[in-house]
Amino acid sequence: MNRLEVLATGPLTTVQDRGRPGFAAIGVPRAGALDRGAAAQALRLVGAAPSAAVLESLLGGLEVRVRDACWAAVTGAVAAVEVEGRPVPWGRAVRVPAGARLRVGTASHGLRTYLAIGGGVALPPVLGSRATDTLAWVGPPAIAVGDVLPLDAAAGPPGIGDALPPVTAPILRLHPGPHAGRFADGVLDGLLGAAYRVASDSDRIGLRLHGPAIARTAAELPSEGMVLGAVQVPPDGQPVVFLADHPTTGGYPVVGVVDPRDVDRCAQVRPGDVVRFARA
């Protein structure tokens, strides 16, 4: 079995796949790649199975060395990619020779890069998934320098084509939430089109936004189930978009739910970027 050695991780690198749906009732988030489309692109490019695991890296800075020759691809945030110090294309399958180092530079456009290599990272699954959940830390721990990770064999030949760079100043289409009676009249209309800046404490749990405060007319609710893309409104009125590692329950009212087609975009906006909401 091929293996890769981790030489550098950047600010945060985790193993991610399509996540572990179906365990919310026991308090386990779905987790999985935040930018699901970019992760799937990387896997297609190297000929790995759609269910295989990739390395998700915040801002890039990941460096690995492979034991045996294999295919690799970097998608998501745009960054310089090198093999043994030589530039290779971003967003395209590249051949990595046995013993060679692959380095992903700092992201220049977007926030999270995805490295698919070989047939995917082959760590043992937990509850049916290899994804790292950063809320409850179910699954593998965050990747550390010196880790040696097993790789599966590719399921097929490398794919043809180039990945697309992420949309990083997005419009997020919004469906009305379940708690209309907990907000002042016209709040949803006021939210649509308003500019919100991404806060620096955003993470895999939630995209935290700063902008016009959303007026609530009632206190918190009894805790109830939460879904991916739910836009919760805490007491300060600043919305939070729930992402892959979000808690499975919550007591703050939900003003809307981001359309599933747009949730991936939340993975690639940086602190200080502006997002807007539109009616789905």
Score class of each variant (00 low, 15 high):
N2L: 09
L7D: 10
P11R: 05
P11K: 04
D17M: 10
R18K: 14
G19E: 12
G22T: 11
A24K: 05
V28N: 02
P29M: 09
P29E: 04
A31S: 09
G32A: 03
R36V: 14
R36C: 10
G37Q: 14
A38L: 12
A40L: 15
A42I: 13
L43Y: 14
L43F: 07
L43H: 10
R44Q: 06
V46D: 01
A48H: 13
A49I: 02
P50K: 03
P50E: 15
V54W: 08
V54N: 05
E56Q: 11
L58P: 00
L59S: 07
L62F: 05
L62S: 04
E63M: 15
A72C: 12
A73F: 10
T75W: 05
V78K: 13
A79N: 07
V81Y: 08
V88L: 06
V88K: 11
V88C: 05
W90P: 07
W90Y: 11
W90T: 09
G91A: 07
V94G: 03
R95I: 05
P97V: 13
A100D: 01
L102K: 12
R103G: 12
R103T: 13
V104C: 15
V104S: 10
G105V: 13
G105T: 09
G105N: 14
S108K: 15
Y114Q: 06
L115Y: 08
L115G: 08
A122V: 01
A122Q: 04
L123M: 13
P124R: 03
P125I: 10
L127A: 02
P140Y: 08
P140W: 09
P141E: 03
I143A: 01
A144L: 09
G146F: 08
L151G: 01
A153D: 13
A154L: 13
A154T: 11
A155I: 05
A155M: 12
P157W: 08
P157M: 13
P158R: 05
I160L: 15
L164P: 00
T168W: 09
I171H: 07
H175F: 15
G177F: 10
F183V: 14
F183I: 14
A184K: 07
V187T: 15
L191R: 10
L192N: 09
V198I: 11
V198W: 06
A199I: 14
D201Y: 00
S202N: 02
D203G: 03
I205Y: 01
G206Q: 00
R208I: 03
A215F: 01
A215V: 13
A218G: 01
A219Q: 10
E220L: 02
L221E: 09
M226V: 15
V227G: 00
V231C: 12
Q232Y: 06
Q232I: 06
P234A: 01
P234E: 04
Q238A: 01
F242E: 02
D245I: 08
H246P: 02
G250H: 06
G251H: 07
Y252A: 01
G256A: 11
G256R: 07
P260D: 00
C266F: 04
Q268G: 00
D273S: 02
V274W: 08
V274K: 03
F277A: 01
R279L: 13
